[in-house]
Design a binder for these strands. Structure first.
Lengths: 217, 217
DNA sequence: CTGGTATGATTGTCGATCAATCAGACGATC
DNA sequence: GATCGTCTGATTGATCGACAATCATACCAG
């Protein structure tokens, strides 16, 4: 009586990486926290070798850093890192928006509208965390609609680091702005206007960055 | 006089990954070739665990694929993969060109000109492999001038897969075109014109793709 | 030909072990 | 007292051997 799809085929190495990743992006493990292989192994009930591969994995994802013979720690981000994340994310999302617009179909429009409406609905409330999730869902939908596996993968890497930063810095935003700032983007994609969609996507992110800069400075 | 990074402290895991990576991008290991952990371990005189981490590393780089409990093999690329590589590379390189132009300095101009002149010189000869290296050097210089570590990293990943494909498909090109097709790009960067540099970089790659498509079809 | 089974190959995971290296404490020398 | 080694503990770097889980194939029965 096995249910297809529910079968646990993920290796323990992957699962360990997943757990650690979740703890990092959700802020359970704050930047700078030291991670000891043997300790983690005991904690998760796994062998050191398995944890080791998971840590290496997270290392390539930029979530943890490694000092030879000294240890692992949750990555800390400086100003340069933040700038890199914003510029790279804007570019990747611009590409995704353009591709999504170029190959938009009826089903795609429906999925996009659904995600957008959901976000608008959430923005009427005050649950900032839910809004963040809705925002991510919308962006992730656009990425999927681009039909670009590598783009999705690279975006995922950036997004995780981004989330880690957002959580650690405890950054917030105005619910009302978030929802409507995506309107032009969604429209452009649904209309199949690749160039405009790309511009709107880039503007969406860099605009947000500038807003944050002003508040911080 | 601190020459950090001079000391060779690379772990065996990294070195093993490097060797395998070289063999893959240089075509010694052709796509589809099976890679057995124990065999590689004996070949390189390393333990299985070390090889295992190296293979996982190459897996995240997209150079090898893994089938659970079955084995590893050198990644094979289909048409969709090639499209993904071209679009992603064009976008990343466009971003690099724009950033490089925006922060160009005297020293940067010199480095760029040096790489460009070197490429022009090589293009007068017939050594296609040398031309390829010169071409890559120029592009890599642009990436470095962008001052974007993550961009450099992600570009590296794409480039390795790209090289693997170029080698396997044994693709060639016209030496005369290669050299001069980069002229506008170099000029735009040196002039500090970000928008134009980005456009030229994108055009450079997508133009090359279309040329190849025509010859193949 | 079909379906099930036996078998070998390979990865998945574990545990123990030792070497290499780093960080900090301790102490000696000037 | 400041500086320089040295000692020591902690942690990773790397190896080996072992066994279970899984996949691919060949083989056999009907």
């Amino acid at each position: 009586m096995k249910k297809a799809g529910l079968i646990n085929k993920r290796s323990l190495e992957e699962q360990a990486a997943d757990l650690l990743r979740q703890d990092i992006v959700n802020g359970v493990l704050t930047p700078g926290t030291r991670l000891v292989e043997t300790t983690l192994a005991k904690e998760y009930g796994l062998s050191r070798g398995t944890i080791r591969i998971a840590l290496h994995q997270l290392g390539t994802e930029g979530l943890v850093t490694q000092v030879p013979y000294a240890g692992w720690s949750v990555a800390t981000l400086d100003d340069q890192d933040i700038w890199e994340l914003y510029t790279l994310r804007a570019t990747l999302e611009g590409l995704a928006a353009r591709l999504a617009a170029e190959r938009i179909c009826q089903q795609g429009v429906e999925r996009l509208q659904a995600a957008y409406n959901q976000l608008l609905k959430l923005c009427e409330g005050e649950d900032l965390q839910a809004i963040t999730r809705g925002d991510l869902d919308l962006h992730k939908t656009i990425i999927e609609l681009s039909g670009h596996r590598r783009l999705a993968h690279q975006y995922q890497l950036i997004e995780n680091q981004f989330l880690s930063y957002i959580t650690a810095a405890n950054r917030t935003f105005d619910p009302h702005e978030v929802g409507h700032s995506h309107q032009a983007l969604v429209e452009a994609i649904c209309a199949g206007e690749g160039e405009r969609a790309e511009a709107e996507a880039v503007n969406n992110i860099t605009g947000f960055e500038q807003l944050q800069q002003e508040r911080a400075g």
